[in-house]
Design a binder for these strands. Sequence first.
DNA 1: CTGAAAGCGCTTACAG
DNA 2: CTGAAAGCGCTTACAG
Lengths: 368, 368
Amino acid sequence: MLPSQNLHRAATLADVGREAGVSAMAASAVLNGARTSSRIAPETRERILAAAAKLRYRPNAAARALANRRMDTIGVAGVFDDGGELNQYFLEILSGILAAAGSREQNTTVFTLHDWDRDTARLHSFCDGRIDGLILLAPTLSRAQGKLLPAHTPFVALHANTSLPHVVNIESDEEHGAFLAVRALIDGGHRRILHFFGTRGRLGAERRIVGFKRALATARVPFDDSMLVPAGFSTEEGRRAMRRWLADHAGEPLPTGIFCVNDGVAFGCLEALAELGIRVPEDVSIVGFDDTLGARSSVPQLTTIRQPLRAMGSRAVEVLLERVNGSNGEMIAEDVSSVVFPVELIERASTAAPPSTDRLVPPRKQRR
Amino acid sequence: MLPSQNLHRAATLADVGREAGVSAMAASAVLNGARTSSRIAPETRERILAAAAKLRYRPNAAARALANRRMDTIGVAGVFDDGGELNQYFLEILSGILAAAGSREQNTTVFTLHDWDRDTARLHSFCDGRIDGLILLAPTLSRAQGKLLPAHTPFVALHANTSLPHVVNIESDEEHGAFLAVRALIDGGHRRILHFFGTRGRLGAERRIVGFKRALATARVPFDDSMLVPAGFSTEEGRRAMRRWLADHAGEPLPTGIFCVNDGVAFGCLEALAELGIRVPEDVSIVGFDDTLGARSSVPQLTTIRQPLRAMGSRAVEVLLERVNGSNGEMIAEDVSSVVFPVELIERASTAAPPSTDRLVPPRKQRR
DNA sequence: CTGAAAGCGCTTACAG
DNA sequence: CTGAAAGCGCTTACAG
């Protein structure tokens, strides 16, 4: 049995000063001050350092934050626990945020929301001096709710669903991404193409639908509503949507290509197709969107549209810190511009030329 | 153009008190105090609440932390950015941590390490009053390094590689998990079984090797070293290990079953097998370990050993908070016991009975 | 080069 | 029921 880790209180600057025979202020200058440390005589400095080491001095971040009016911590708020693949998206952005924050010696605290609409109150409670600024991850707040955001906290949004007053939004060119995905299918010889789309009303879902239609129109491939299949954003929803479509179209020709609203839905499609023994890409080509980690480890590896999620996360930190540092009284416009990142087509093994003859939907489930 | 969000300083309790015509202390009792709030007259209370709303008062967490000697924040330190699948493992535990911390009104801040050995100094710098306690995620610190951990911060470890002084370790019964995995293969009729093992010297890897051997011994299946194939912990390493094994054994019989050290390695095996047209589970059965999210979305879905990662994360928070709350001077033993969670076999589509006739390793890559 | 003072915004005893 | 005082541990002017 050793004494409790917390039996004695932690050493303070005053303790260190006493031990070294100097004031707490001198200890502060040596141990925590950046520019003022030169003003301490070298031998005093040594004594202070030795005393700090002996007492295992650790600065108290709360006290420092209070004196500096600065926590050196940014917050990230998002719907983290949405079952499955949103996690992937979240994780990649989060790792970009963590990297950028870390390299600028900022900490990151993560706030989990269950629902943007219901948790606005909690959102307020995060902005209470423990963070210097907050990154909103894919918020679906209305503009009215945006106006109610706490006034003294700088915000940056990533993939915001609506433009929020005073909040810079960081996004990617999703419509162009959808266009690239569908054009790649068309260039590969595909004509019978489906789009498994996301949750209606969500900006990302709508933009991909627009890009899908534009690619068809540009190539003069006729569009009709039956090419639009409702899915959602999760693997589970993708799987169900594909199964349903197959059940509804037994005996009819398969599409030769499917553009999915995101990688998660694409994975669900892969599974549902595999259940019926339909081969990808020999029978059907599949394209996803996001280039999450899983896209490289699915079988077959997924052709997808890469959004630079990590870079977007890093950028969010940079923009936020600019605002935190520069917010000493200058004006911030209500309608700030967004930052739009480019997207890129990543061709992997889930796409190929369409089959030379029509493939029909198998009548019913075969054994696996 | 509207004024900057930070033009005016945020309202303090003194401001609220002034506005309501009472002291800051009264405002504190109403707005932040839990037990003392009854001591304020109802009408005073109303006035204070109204003033706080008008001024959009938000408590300053740093000041409160300083006064309370408590941040209401726990830290999580781990190697986050290890390329790929460790992220999955990390993410699931993290979501358990976030959920448990959130329900107890504790915040979570995430610290990323690149390497446990080199970043011990950074580890110290985290323990500086911004967190009340720290969860170490899969630390590979030596016991000597463990002794150097900051003395005034309570710690809990998850899957620690060695037992750290004063640190409760939360782990799962990995050896038994390995035993279950291999016994399931044996019970299914498999005899020619390989184990793709993890990084040598890592406790988790060693325990799985022990479980593998014990299952063979129990069933009187002879063991020899050629059944042990070095892989690692990542999908990339699993893919390379499988490819290498196949290249080295062209024309020889395939194993009928492979037990992989984790899901990531199993995914790599699936890919490398698919490249040669070897079917899972018809030709080879594959078992993973962890039951990460991807195990349900791989093709085929992966049979694996489930570790209750989320529950383990939640438990880590509970144990840590007990120590944070109870650390007012009682003793904590140097050698604390570990918490061991049970594991469970999850049978999915990557395992089946062995083929009736030997399958040989195809001589060379076929076209996909 | 070094120290005494005041203050960051909150809370906890202690008086009234 | 309410307020004046002291303190949490640090930092930033200001004197010497």
